[in-house]
């Protein structure tokens, strides 16, 4: 309730804060306005423009990144609150050989996009969602929340409902995720899932090792 707030000295002066963000395994030291969201830090200050700003209110999912391996909306996060976390963006989502990630390959194979604006967020959301499935996280689509989840189409749709696609590529996105998660055409599902999960932790471990090395050098 703004009216109830007592007057505050220099209410309108920006507050600049030094901070270190660990993104895709690399530490970045920045001085940013306290108001800077994780999304704006990534896009405007680290020039990692793969993460997209759609609604900027947590409704569309275009800004989805992994924080310590878990998918979150980068637009509803303050950068300063994520010091010490391991952030993975679409730029850091790499396949086992350092090239195209299996999720990216599945999106291409299944034509799971049209204009592409929501696609980085969709792909990062899939990466987080596959890890959640493997960890046994239940969903609203389950008839029994105590049971182990199965990657049915209904589960995929429910679990991906935080990512909007205004072109309406949903049907093909479900096809791509089904292929990755053990559905009908799941040639490489196990390895793809393993890779998706490993990416978050692997980047995390690399970053932790780097942080350790830096700390050791001090």
């Amino acid at each position: 309730m703004p009216d109830a707030l007592p007057p505050h000295p220099d209410r309108h002066a920006p507050v600049m804060l030094p901070m270190t963000l660990t993104v895709n395994g690399t530490d970045h030291t920045l001085t940013l306005d306290a108001r800077t969201t994780l999304l704006d830090a990534l896009r405007e200050h680290l020039h990692l423009t793969g993460s997209k700003k759609g609604c900027d209110h947590g409704q569309c999912g275009a800004c989805t990144v992994l924080v310590n391996g878990q998918r979150v909306n980068a637009c509803l996060a303050l950068a300063v609150m994520h010091q010490g976390d391991h952030v993975t963006t679409i730029e850091g989502l790499l396949g086992p050989d350092g090239g195209q990630h299996p999720i990216q390959a599945a999106f291409i194979a299944h034509d799971a996009f049209q204009c592409g604006y929501c696609t980085p967020g969709q792909i990062m959301s899939v990466a987080g969602m596959l890890a959640e499935l493997q960890a046994g996280v239940p969903s609203h689509a389950a008839s029994d929340v105590a049971a182990a989840p199965a990657p049915t189409d209904a589960e995929i749709r429910e679990r991906m409902s935080g990512n909007l696609c205004r072109c309406g590529a949903y049907t093909h996105i479900v096809d791509a995720v089904r292929a990755l998660s053990g559905g009908a055409d799941a040639q490489a599902s196990a390895s793809a899932m393993g890779t998706a999960i490993a990416t978050g932790t692997q980047v995390g471990r690399t970053a932790a090792a780097m942080a350790g090395a830096v700390a050791g050098a001090r």
Partner: peptide, 14 residues
Amino acid sequence: EAILAGASGQLRNK
């Protein structure tokens, strides 16, 4: 069930 009926996967993680 109530938690899973709310928000999105991304929001529930935060």
